[in-house]
């Protein structure tokens, strides 16, 4: 029956959006927390890439994990969901570029992806992981996935002009 098929497709899409949110939010929160706790280790990781002056690495290490955390919370709660996905996408592009240039220059370092919590060397594995997360974020940014559940407060609702607004749970 066509009606049932459409409902199933919509339901599957909603489920995939929720899953993407949880995966990306979970990984970014797991990545942000150790960096917030041990800022110095993360600052050294940034310096190891030898892209920025060392004086900037400390400041960036203090700010970047907070942006990661807020973006992850946006994905988790569903509030400003697409903004969070956009922030995470931009960060992932920067991370991929940083890892790729380290590989090209033969710099053998820990990627600093998870701060002091876990070791992860720069390499194709870390690039592949970030590309996978980027694809999930792009999925969240697709116009057809504008609607999604929010934690505490219903779901976003698409206006006729295509922008989002608050909506009550049905």
């Amino acid at each position: 029956m066509p009606g049932v098929s459409l409902m199933s497709r919509a339901g599957l899409r909603q489920a995939s959006v929720l899953l993407a949110r949880l995966i990306v939010a979970g990984i970014f929160l797991f990545a942000a927390l150790p960096k917030l706790i041990d800022v110095e280790t993360f600052a050294r990781s940034i310096a190891n890439y030898r892209v920025l002056p060392e004086a900037w690495a400390g400041s960036l290490a203090s700010i970047l994990p907070w942006i990661e955390a807020f973006a992850a919370l946006a994905l988790l709660t569903g509030w400003y969901l697409r903004g969070g996905a956009l922030v995470v996408s931009a960060m992932l592009l920067v991370f991929i570029a940083a890892i790729a240039q380290a590989m090209a220059r033969g710099i053998d370092i820990d990627c600093g992806c998870f701060g002091a919590a876990a070791e992860s060397e720069v390499g194709w594995g870390s690039i592949a992981r970030n590309l996978g997360l980027l694809l999930l974020c792009l999925w969240l940014l697709l116009p057809m996935n504008r609607e999604s559940w929010r934690l505490l407060g219903g779901r976003t609702k698409v206006k006729p002009d295509g922008s989002s607004s608050e909506g009550k749970a049905r």
């Binding site: 800022v39 993360f42 310096a47 400390g58 970047l64 942006i67 973006a71 903004g83």
Partner: peptide
């Protein structure tokens, strides 16, 4: 885009507050 800017600004403000409290961490390669 406005949502993304707001989220980033929140992160920057929180980071600057962290710097004010703890100082800038040293990063010696």
């Amino acid at each position: 885009v406005k949502e993304a800017v707001l989220i980033s600004l929140l992160g920057v403000v929180a980071g600057l507050m962290s710097v004010a409290l703890r100082g800038v961490p040293r990063a010696e390669a």
